[in-house]
Nucleic acid binder design. Sequence first.
DNA 1: ACTACTTTGTATGACTTGTGTACAAAAGGG
DNA 2: CCCTTTTGTACACAAGTCATACAAAGTAGT
Lengths: 394, 394
Amino acid sequence: MRRIDLKKANAARSNTIRDINRQIVLNYVRELGPISRAAIARETALQRSTISLIVDELRVVGLIEEVSGESTGGRPPSLLSLRTVDAVAIGVDLGTVKTVMASSDLAGRVLEQEEFPTDPDVKKTLEKIVDCSQRLIGKTRGAIEGIGISVPGVVDPESGNLYVPHFNWRNAPIAETLTQATSLPVSMDNDANAAALAELWFGRPEIREVRDFILVLVEQGVGTGIVFDGQVYRGEGGTAGEFGHMTIGTGAPVECAVGSRECWEAFASERSAVARYQKLARSNGDDVSFSAVMDLALKGERNARAALKETARYLGIGIANLIQGLAPEAVIVGGPIARVWPVIVEDLKASVDSSICRGFPSTPILDSTLGSEPTLMGALSLVLASKFASAPVA
Amino acid sequence: MRRIDLKKANAARSNTIRDINRQIVLNYVRELGPISRAAIARETALQRSTISLIVDELRVVGLIEEVSGESTGGRPPSLLSLRTVDAVAIGVDLGTVKTVMASSDLAGRVLEQEEFPTDPDVKKTLEKIVDCSQRLIGKTRGAIEGIGISVPGVVDPESGNLYVPHFNWRNAPIAETLTQATSLPVSMDNDANAAALAELWFGRPEIREVRDFILVLVEQGVGTGIVFDGQVYRGEGGTAGEFGHMTIGTGAPVECAVGSRECWEAFASERSAVARYQKLARSNGDDVSFSAVMDLALKGERNARAALKETARYLGIGIANLIQGLAPEAVIVGGPIARVWPVIVEDLKASVDSSICRGFPSTPILDSTLGSEPTLMGALSLVLASKFASAPVA
DNA sequence: ACTACTTTGTATGACTTGTGTACAAAAGGG
DNA sequence: CCCTTTTGTACACAAGTCATACAAAGTAGT
């Protein structure tokens, strides 16, 4: 029951049919590969001859390759899989503390990785990114086809407008400069959206089946990436997912990025957990990093555990609101906090259950399936997903 | 960047191309008609000959018809428009107080309308619906092709499971019975979702351009219909849009359907407004209807106006949360309350502005474009939209 | 009234793509 | 060594759009 957007709709031509089927075949290879032509034909109900023609096209452009397979009683199949000998993408995970960059192959496997502290001066950080990009391009075999950047701020995908509250960067020409320096296409998005994209395309199989989910990214702030119908929802001006500014109470331990003590992120971000720990441990003087608090908690230190558990409780209140309103098939919690998942999971789930108004179907709440750095994978996904995404039709 | 759903994906055949283009042409006629074949060819960049072939198909199945047009300097065009001489759909707006039923043509124009009080006993209400359906089928010219039902509760579009909290109806076989009695396909959905569908397909032109919006339906409770990418989002089990149970404060004037005094709908529903009025007017004894409160307010009665304005303030708090999290292009407020829109609009907008955390783009907040009964139009839309919706591809 | 021009709608062969059938290739099993 | 099974390819046919030509039906100028 989707309404056709007449302004953007493209009528189907003879080659549209091949465009559609090429993407379908490519995705079968990506998700079920190594797989034979005959198996794809059975799954898609296309003829084997048709699959052969499409496979030839995909091999010519270097997206897939053949390996030999074992016979199952007849002629042995030649199995198809993604061609992963070359690097094709560079990802830039621009964080508030450090910036991580990596190159990856088509399947999203990281080949080379570097990192450096993020400089509050945009120009200096941008210089480092350009340098590192060129190093990565030189170091890796294969032609890089694009650069993806994940940033902790708001990005308008249409206009390219950018706002990073933590450094107060506004409309810095990051993408433009990088494009000029490398002559590669650059795409940039909010870190939570990018992480959601990564979970959608490269997450654990149990998540990849899910087409409607919410990723809650806990870092300096709290961001959400909303996936609806297998698509990241960006909203007007790319500002969707700012549920971090949802009011959920009063008297938070820290202020949110805008100075409120009522927002969800003022209750549930890394900064709030650190503040809780400092209050409990009375270590008000010295700066403690969130990473250090997690280390302490994993060693069993009581105050650190209590601070994390309390933070989890507030995470749960916000998650409950999202579950009630959006009924996702799953909620994923990502970011560094995923490292202490066993410490917080019980309190978090209990908080969600008690905050939900009535017997809503219980929604699975999982830790990120991409380790503690889903945003780097997100940056890479910005490039990789575009090669596999379905062509927009009608 | 949509991820292909391999389980549901259908590979494209030769006729897929025609299927796509047929829907595009039909929607041009629907939205821009009366329009000539040549004009559609210019818009779609398809050849005039191709459009002619498609138009022939659409005329044979009775979806469009020809009228003569004026020359603009050359051969006069034969204009195409939707065929609206026949009734094609029946809509059932099952409300907590009354049930309104109507038949409509392809363009959504109501032809015949009836209404009766809703009986708390499902069976009796169902009998009335069956009777009325048969009357409407007999009364109207043309073959009815389906029946749409809008209900104030949760409907799972997959399993058909139903729950109407106001009458405590659970899994009543409404759709099945009606299908058997009329041998017509029956589709049912939540009232807010149906109303959102109606705004999407049959709303004012300024809303029809919008592909991401939220409809807030204020009635006995508060429901939301969420439209993403020109599609109503239903969520897992059809339970999305229950933002009415979002916690926004404490000490609401009434309890929500589940007994909480913290939910949005306990602050912003019709019942809450009536309770506020009764408290202000100290008329605790007699039952006052929301309709009566609105009448008083329109006459200028002070307590009624104050009760509605206070309700609008809480409506605004919830709407602000939705705007921050989902960044819709517009928010539409629908339901009977649209009748007093001039009374409440200022307080509502002021409340939204003050609740929003920072300089988010200001989102238009509009009253329903479908009068005071958007849910009847929603029920009809359940049938009509399926005829115009784009065929799911890839 | 006649001609030139414009615009609309239709007819026809060429091109792309998937289908269905036939066939070759390459293994296992008795 | 022959039969069966499975895989991959080749070729005539059907469906659909494109490009072009052409017919139809007006307006505008002389």
